[in-house]
């Protein structure tokens, strides 16, 4: 589903991504973890070109995203993206947040798009909030709407960039449970997260990143029981109290 081939990115002299190679297979749930500043978010943002890369190639569904002639908007519409800060559109109601892309990019009628919004809100447990404005929702509810919005174009792949890091602790569970349901349906998912229990229960694979490089690419069982790198051992010791 996604292939990283020797991906490098620099911010001026700072080497943000260092020769990233790896593959995310269809139906797989990949959890990316690592200390802050390790390049996790940068890496996930390169997949839908929110960040440009300087060398290497990224393929999504077999298509090289940096090729000329790739319709970047069509590509992005086919990749769900969930932000740490939710980023709902504050001037639009919940149903319009979800319907915006299907109407503007997918060519649906407004009526069809609202029906789709209802269906997706049902899925994330917020069918009674269709007419609410984002300002009236809790953080957990906003993030669930953001997940519904990311699902609106029926993407085969969703990227989560620290989806629970900005939430009050009591709201983390509701968002994770929506994510677990998606994983159970066979959705291909890449999640940058510090939720190690989620990683243990749901992930098929874990990447541990440090200083822009992937240090470990392994199974959760292997990662939690026998982390190979000193940095990974220290990270786990710091994060699991």
């Amino acid at each position: 589903m996604i292939q990283f081939e020797h991906v490098n990115k620099w911010y001026k002299k700072y080497h943000a991504l260092n020769d990233i190679c790896g593959e995310v297979r269809e139906g797989e749930v990949l959890v990316v973890c690592g200390p802050s500043g390790s390049g996790k978010s940068t890496m996930i943002r390169t997949v839908n070109k929110l960040e440009e890369i300087q060398s290497g190639a990224i393929r999504v569904g077999g298509e090289c995203i940096s090729d000329h002639g790739v319709d970047i908007n069509r590509l992005r519409a086919g990749i769900g993206f969930v932000f740490q800060q939710f980023n709902l559109f504050p001037h639009l109601s919940v149903k319009d947040n979800i319907a915006l892309s299907p109407v503007k990019v997918g060519g649906m009628t407004r009526k069809q798009a609202y029906e789709l919004a209802d269906e997706l809100l049902q899925k994330v447990g917020l069918h009674d909030k269709r007419d609410a404005m984002p300002a009236n929702l809790s953080g957990g509810q906003q993030q669930r709407v953001a997940i519904a919005r990311a699902l609106a174009q029926k993407p085969p792949l969703i990227l989560f960039d620290e989806p629970t890091s900005a939430l009050d602790p009591e709201m983390v569970g509701e968002v994770l449970s929506v994510m677990k349901n998606l994983a159970a349906e066979g959705m291909t998912m890449v999640c940058v997260t510090h939720e190690m229990n989620f990683a243990r229960e749901v992930a098929d694979r874990i990447w541990f990143m440090d200083r822009g490089a992937i240090l470990e690419d392994t199974t959760p069982v292997e990662f939690f029981s026998h982390p190979r790198h000193e940095r990974a051992r220290k990270f786990l010791a710091d994060i699991i109290h």
Binding site: N48, N73, R76, G78, F83, F89, H91, R149
Partner: peptide, 26 residues
């Protein structure tokens, strides 16, 4: 906020669609 532009582009809106539907109204 930059996140608004990013979110609108991430759902597939083009430059002008993002301006018109998301950035300019705000």
């Amino acid at each position: 906020p930059a996140g608004q532009r990013e979110a609108s582009r991430a759902v597939g809106l083009g430059y002008f669609q993002s301006l018109w539907s998301v950035q300019l109204p705000q």
